[in-house]
Design a protein around this nucleic acid. Structure first.
Length: 133
RNA sequence: CCAGCCGGCCGGACAGCCGCGCCCUGCAAUGCCGAAAGGUGGCGGGAUGAGGAAAGUCCGGGCUCCACGGAAACACGGUGCCGGGUAACAUCCGGCGGGGGAGACCCCAGGGAAAGUGCCACAGAAAGAAAACCGCCCCGCCAGCAUUCCGGUCCAUUUUGAUCCGGACCUGAAUGCCGGCGGGGUAAGGGUGAAAGGGUGGGGUAAGAGCCCACCGCAUUGCCGGCAACGGCAAUGGCAGGGUAAACCCCACCGGGAGCAAGACCGAAUAGGGAUGACGCGGGGCGCAAGCUCCAGCCCGUUUCCGGGUGGGUCAUCCGGGUAGGUUGCUAGAGGCAGGAUGCAAAUCCUGCCCCAGAGGAAUGGCUGUCACGCCCGUCAUCUCGAUGGCGGGUGAUACAGAACCCGGCUUACAGGCCGGCUGGCGCU
């Protein structure tokens, strides 16, 4: 059996230069966050995501919680809609702290999948199918 | 039972589903990224994963690198009753002194003010070898009033006597009172102030004052107790120039600097560094030259003395460091728990057991249920009429807050709760 390359999961952004690069990409505003998206030109490589919560949003405990909720929302739902070869940065806002989890998830799904062209949508669906097998 | 003081502890629990970091491990493959160093990934199993403050980064250390040639002086910073404990400390423990409280107990930057300098706003007369605003007292002078008296002038009256005496004015004297001016005494009283040159009481005095006396305070000396800070007692002295040293300062003691983004290792490109060769040099001396040597300049916190180091640029070739990046440092430690010994205690020592987060754009979470707990609402019962208890419902990131090399403290934040000791009051026996 060949190694499974059909469900690559989601990578992480870890370097400051990577975060700065994504800042130059497309920006999509949401009620609880700001989403930055960049096609890094890596073709079929798995998508990567990073989280940013500035100190203005609260103390360390609150910032941790904002990041964890955003990450959980992407892990459970919104991550499936990410495009290959793209980087995403979610800049959390304080409202993400207290918003109902369902609402947070809904708005993230909408922002990540929004501008998808038909071709991309096609592939995304097939990827999803393969994963569920 | 109520009010209060002190010390210690906890700070949601359990379960389900889906996840995350790190470590160990089985299977598959020997993948993917990268020049390399190295990183990363598939399917499973197991173990483990935030705090009392992890916070503020205010002290003290360990650890690491840098600096560090010697001596003296200077400068800078810190600490400041005594003793103990400690790796060390501003912390801690035990004392002492002062202040607060009815008490348990709490608070204190608590060396030196006759080494010197400065400052003491406003107010006040005066803020330091003091002064006299009001007041009090004495003396002198002036004016007024009252009483008494000596003398004089004018008017009136006049038979005598009883019992001091007709009236007005002027000058003068004495006494008393009130006022003014001047001279002096006074520090009791008033007033000002944070503070006015010991306090209270009595004697004394013209009025007052340590002027004298008693007690208290203070100073000096001696003796006794205590390792000491200091305390006690006695004698002597009439009292001696106040406060401020978180003003300068003086004294004693302590102190190199920077921090895990420390540092170590691996290691592209580019710039820069070293060696060699060519071109040829801040000054002097020797030498044909190579070179040797002396000095200026610069550096070693500052200064002085001695000492040491350095002591030119451009081009070509070669070499080692180093940046991006990666690995490491990274958790077994002044460690925790239990017992014992010593000590009033802080703490130290001994024995046994345990291994207890190691991330790195930073894991420790998301959702749900049950139960505690708090808050809110409704309802019922009790009664000392405002609470207590029962039931039902709603609500909650449950308070403060997230390890970032590691320890010892300090400070600050904190819903709610538990335990122990002590003080005061009330009730009962």
């Amino acid at each position: 059996m060949p190694p499974n390359r059909l469900s690559p999961g989601i990578g992480r952004l870890k370097r400051r230069s990577e975060f700065l690069a994504v800042r130059k990409g497309e920006r999509r505003k949401g009620p609880f966050f700001l989403l930055e998206v960049l096609d890094r030109g890596a073709g079929d490589a798995r998508p990567r995501v990073g989280y940013t919560v500035t100190k203005r949003q609260g103390n360390a405990v609150e910032r941790n919680r904002i990041r964890r909720r955003l990450r959980e929302a992407i892990r459970l739902h919104a991550g499936f809609d990410m495009k290959r070869g793209h980087d995403y940065v979610v800049v959390g806002r304080r409202d993400a702290l207290t918003a109902p989890f369902a609402e947070l998830t809904k708005s993230l799904v909408a922002r990540i999948g929004r501008p998808a062209a038909d071709a991309n949508r096609q592939r995304r669906v097939s990827t999803k199918d393969n994963r569920t097998e």
